[in-house]
Design a protein around this nucleic acid. Structure first.
Lengths: 246, 246
DNA sequence: TTCATTGTAGCTATGATAGCTACATAAGTA
DNA sequence: TACTTATGTAGCTATCATAGCTACAATGAA
C-alpha cells in the first residue's frame, strides 16, 4: 500500500469530503448538485461535464444545468466547445468576492439598524445651529456632490450670495444641480429651475447620501449622512418635482 | 416638510429598501419571507409576529414559520409569551459568525484544491531521503501526536531501537498508539498491537493530520501534512484494522 | 360572556430540485 | 461513407419548499 493506492481510492473517499464541504456551500445558496459540482471542480481544476458529473456523483445530463448556473454566479469559468471544458477559478478571489458581498449586505443592514425602533434609535440626524454654520454646511454639501445636488429654499438670495461660485464650480464638474425657488427670485447657475410658491423650509440633498433640512430663517438645521434617509428624501423630492429618480 | 414627516412616510418607502437588502440576504440561503422579516427586525429591533408581518409586508400567519426559522439559524432571538416578542441580535456578531463560517468553508476548499488534478497539482507530498532522516521524521510525528499515532512497519526493530523512549513519553501523554507489526517481532510500548504477516512498506499517521509512507528499507519516504490526505489514510487504516474511526 | 388577538394546522398553486428518459447533433473511427 | 460514441438539449415525474391563504382553537382583555 502506498500513496498512489490511496489516491486511487479517492474517488470513493472524496465523496464523503464532498458532502461535508458541500453542506456549507448550501448555505450560500447553491443547490446540492451545484455544490457538489463546484467542489469537484475545485479538486480537479477542470473537466468536461461528463467528468465533473462522475467526480461529483451527479447525473451527467443534470450536470450541464448545475455547471451553467455556477458559471452565471461567476464561481467557475468554461471554454465552449464539444466537449465544453469547465474550470475552477482561484479560491482566494471567490472568497474575497463573497466576503465583500456579505460584508456589504451587513453594512447595509447596519445603516438601517434600529431606524424605526420606538426606543434607542441610533443618532441619525445631527443638529447644526447658527446661520453661518448652516450656510457653510450647505456649501460643503454642494462641494462634495459628484452626481446631483438638489436644493429647495425660501432663502434663495442668501444662499446665492454665499455660494454662487460653488454653484458654478459644481456645474463645471458635471454635477446636476436642481433648484427649487419661488417665482421671480434670482437663482444661481444650475441645470434646472423649478418654481414653487410658498416655500418655507430649506431642503438640501447631495448625491442622495447627504441630506439637510433647515428652518425658514436658516438658524438651525438637521443634517444626516445616513444613505437610507438621504436616499429616501431624494426620491421624495424627485417625485415632488415630477421627475422619477432611477 | 421636515424630517419627521419623512420618517412618517417610511412605512411605505421602507418597502423598497427591504427588497434591496433582502435580495442580498437571499444569497445566504434565506427565503423571501425570512429575509424580509429579518430586515424588519433589524430596522425595528423587536416586535410581535403581527408587527413584524406588518413591517415586512408578509402574511401574519406565515410570519411565525419564518421567524422560527430565523431563530433556529441564530439570526434573531425571541421571548416566548402571548404574544411572543422577537428581537434582532447585534449585527456585528451575526456578520462575524457568517464571515467566519464562510471563511472556513473556503479554507476547506483550499485544502483540497487541485488535489486530483492531472497537472499542476500543488505540492502535497514531500520526499525525504536517507534512513536517518526518515527515522527522525517518524520520531517527530510521534512526538507531535496528541490524540493518536498509528504505525505499520516491517522495520519494527529499527524503529523500536531508535524511538522506544518517545513511545513511552507519548503513551504517558495519553496518546493512543496503535502498532501493526509482523508476528513474533518485539514492539515498543503502545496501546495496542495488531499482528499482520507480509508487511512491506512503513505507514505512519499522526493525529490524522500527518502522514508518512516509507519504502521497505526506510531509505526514502513521502510525507504529507495535508489534513485531507492524512485523514483519509487514517480512516483507511482503521478500516483495515477492523476499527471504525469516528 | 363576548370579542379580539394570537398561534397552529393544513390547503392550493407555483417553483425549484433531483433524477431520469429520449433524442438530436457532432465527432471520431473503421 | 457508415456506424458508433460522446455530447448536449428538452422535457418528464416525484418530491420538496415557498408563498399565500383559510379555518379554527386557545388565550387574554373588557
Amino acid at each position: 500500500m502506498d500513496l498512489t493506492d490511496i489516491l486511487k481510492l479517492d474517488t470513493k473517499g472524496v465523496e464523503e469530503e464532498y458532502r461535508r464541504i458541500s453542506s456549507v456551500l448550501r448555505k450560500i445558496g447553491l443547490s446540492d448538485y451545484e455544490s457538489r459540482a463546484y467542489v469537484a471542480l475545485i479538486v480537479h481544476q477542470h473537466g468536461t461535464a461528463d467528468e465533473v458529473a462522475s467526480f461529483a456523483s451527479i447525473p451527467r445530463t443534470s450536470a450541464y444545468k448545475a455547471l451553467r448556473s455556477l458559471r452565471e454566479k461567476d464561481l467557475i469559468d468554461m471554454t465552449e466547445g464539444r466537449p465544453t471544458i469547465f474550470h475552477s477559478l482561484p479560491i482566494q478571489e471567490i472568497k474575497k468576492k463573497f466576503t465583500e458581498e456579505i460584508g456589504e449586505a451587513f453594512n447595509d443592514l447596519e445603516s438601517v439598524q434600529g431606524m424605526l425602533s420606538d426606543r434607542g434609535t441610533p443618532q441619525l440626524v445631527f443638529t447644526i445651529s447658527g446661520k453661518d454654520r448652516v450656510l457653510s454646511k450647505i456649501g460643503d454639501i454642494l462641494e462634495s456632490s459628484r452626481r446631483r445636488f438638489i436644493i429647495s429654499t425660501s432663502q434663495m438670495q442668501r444662499i446665492r450670495v454665499a455660494h454662487s461660485q460653488k454653484f458654478k464650480d459644481s456645474l463645471r464638474r458635471g454635477v446636476e444641480i436642481l433648484v427649487v425657488a419661488e417665482p421671480f427670485v434670482k437663482v444661481p447657475e444650475c441645470t434646472k429651475v423649478y418654481r414653487k410658491r410658498d416655500l418655507i423650509a430649506t431642503d438640501v440633498i447631495g448625491d442622495g447620501v447627504l441630506a439637510l433640512i433647515a428652518s425658514p430663517d436658516l438658524s438651525i438645521c438637521g443634517f444626516s449622512d445616513n444613505p437610507f434617509l438621504a436616499g429616501h428624501l431624494e426620491n421624495f423630492m424627485m417625485m415632488v418635482l415630477g421627475k422619477t429618480s432611477k
